[in-house]
Nucleic acid binder design. Structure first.
Lengths: 204, 204
DNA sequence: GTTTAGTTTAACTATCTGGTTAAATATATA
DNA sequence: TATATATTTAACCAGATAGTTAAACTAAAC
C-alpha cells in the first residue's frame, strides 16, 4: 500500500476522471473505471469525491475553462485582424493536438444538457466572452471584408479549427486515411486555415 | 388497445428509437423510453427487437446511410466544381436543418467505437465512397485553386456545413444568440458557405 | 363465432452501477 | 513507540436497467 498526500491523490483521481469522462462521456463513464485508472479502489474514490456528478461537473468545467483560456490571450493582444486570425488558428490547433478529445466531449455533453453551460458561466464565476467576441467582431467589420457577418466569421474559424478533431474517425473511415496522413493534414491546417479564411475575406 | 400491422408497428418503433438514440446516444438511451415514445410497452418492444444493440445498430446504420445518400447525387452530376460546391452546400445544410441531431449522434458514436464504421461499410454492403471523393478531388485539382489539397477542401466544406449543427448549443451559449438569430445564420450559410469556399479557392 | 395476429399486464430474473460501511492495514509523523 | 493519516478489503444496499415469461385480452379476418 502506498500513501500519498491528499493533494497528490486528489490530482491523481482528477487526471483519471478526466481521461475516462472525456473518452466515454458522462453516461458512458463508470466510477469503477475511474478508480482503476487512478490505481485505487472505489471506496477511496468516493472518499475523495462523494458522487459521480460532482466529479463530472469538475471535469466538464475544467475543460471549458481550458478551452476558453486559449482564446482570451489572442483577443487581448493588439494585432490586426489578419494576424489575430493567424495567431488564433495556430494556437488553437496546437492546443487541440494535445487535447483531441476535449471538443467532442464538450459538444456532446452541452448538447445533452445545455443548462450546464449556463451553470458554468454563473457558478464558475466566468462570464460569456461576449465583449471579447465583440472586439473581434469590430475588427472584422472594419476590414475589407464587405458584408461578412462577424459571427459567421468566428463560427467559420472555429469550424475549420475544431471540426477535424470531432470528426476524425468518421473522416478517416470514409476517406480511408491513415493516422499519419491525418496528423500531417492537421499540422498543415495551422497555417492553411488562416489563409483560407483571409482569402475568403478578400473577395467578400 | 389498438392493433396495427407488423409493418406499421415496426416502423413506429424505429421512429421512436431514432428519436431517443439520436438525442441521448447509445449509453444514454433507455429501452423503456423508446417504448414510451412509441406508445407501447417494453414487452412488445422486445418482441419486435430482441435487444438494444440490434436496434441501436439499425438506427446508426440508417443515419449513416441517410447522410451519405445526400452526398451521392451531387457528385454524380456533371456540374463544374463551383456549381458542385454550391449544390452540395445548399442540399446538405437543408438536410441538416431537418435532421439537426444526426451529425452529433454519428460523430459521438463513431468516436466511441470506430469499428462500427468498418462494420457499416462491410455488413451493410456499402463501400466507402472513396471514388466519389476522388472524383471531387480531381475536379478540385483542375481548378484555378493553386496548391489546395483536395482532401482539405472536402474537409473544409464539411466543416463549414456540419459544425454549426454539432456545436449549436455551445455557440449559442457563448455568443448569447437566440434560436431565431441562429436559424437565420444557418439559412444564410446555404449560399454563403460555397462563396467563402470559392473565394478561398480563387485567391489561393 | 371462431381463429389468428397483435398487444397488454404484471410479475420476475439477472446484472450493473452508484454509493456506503466498518474493520483491518500500512505509512508517515510526532 | 504512539498517533494520525491514508488506503484497502470485502461485504453490502438500493435502484436502475435489459431482457423474459405466461397468461389475459382485443380487434380484425375468416
Amino acid at each position: 500500500m502506498e500513501t500519498n498526500s491528499r493533494h497528490e491523490t486528489r490530482n491523481n483521481i482528477l487526471a483519471a476522471a478526466k481521461k475516462v469522462f472525456i473518452k466515454k462521456g458522462h453516461s458512458g463513464a463508470r466510477m469503477q473505471e475511474i478508480a482503476d485508472e487512478a490505481g485505487i479502489n472505489k471506496a477511496l474514490l468516493h472518499y475523495y469525491f462523494s458522487n459521480k456528478d460532482t466529479l463530472f461537473e469538475y471535469i466538464l468545467f475544467d475543460s471549458l475553462k481550458a478551452i476558453l483560456a486559449q482564446i482570451q490571450p489572442v483577443l487581448d493582444s493588439d494585432m490586426d485582424i489578419y494576424d489575430m486570425i493567424r495567431a488564433f488558428s495556430s494556437t488553437y490547433i496546437s492546443f487541440l493536438q494535445e487535447n483531441s478529445y476535449i471538443p467532442g466531449f464538450i459538444l456532446h455533453e452541452i448538447n445533452q444538457d445545455p443548462g450546464k453551460l449556463v451553470d458554468f458561466f454563473s457558478r464558475a464565476g466566468i462570464k460569456p466572452p461576449v465583449s471579447m467576441f465583440r472586439q473581434f467582431a469590430r475588427a472584422a467589420g472594419k476590414s475589407k471584408a464587405g458584408p461578412y457577418d462577424p459571427y459567421q466569421l468566428v463560427l467559420n474559424i472555429l469550424a475549420l479549427c475544431v471540426f477535424p478533431f470531432v470528426a476524425r474517425p468518421v473522416i478517416q473511415g470514409i476517406f480511408q486515411l491513415d493516422d499519419k496522413v491525418f496528423d500531417d493534414m492537421i499540422e498543415e491546417r495551422k497555417h492553411e486555415v488562416p489563409e483560407w479564411i483571409i482569402n475568403s475575406l478578400k473577395n467578400g
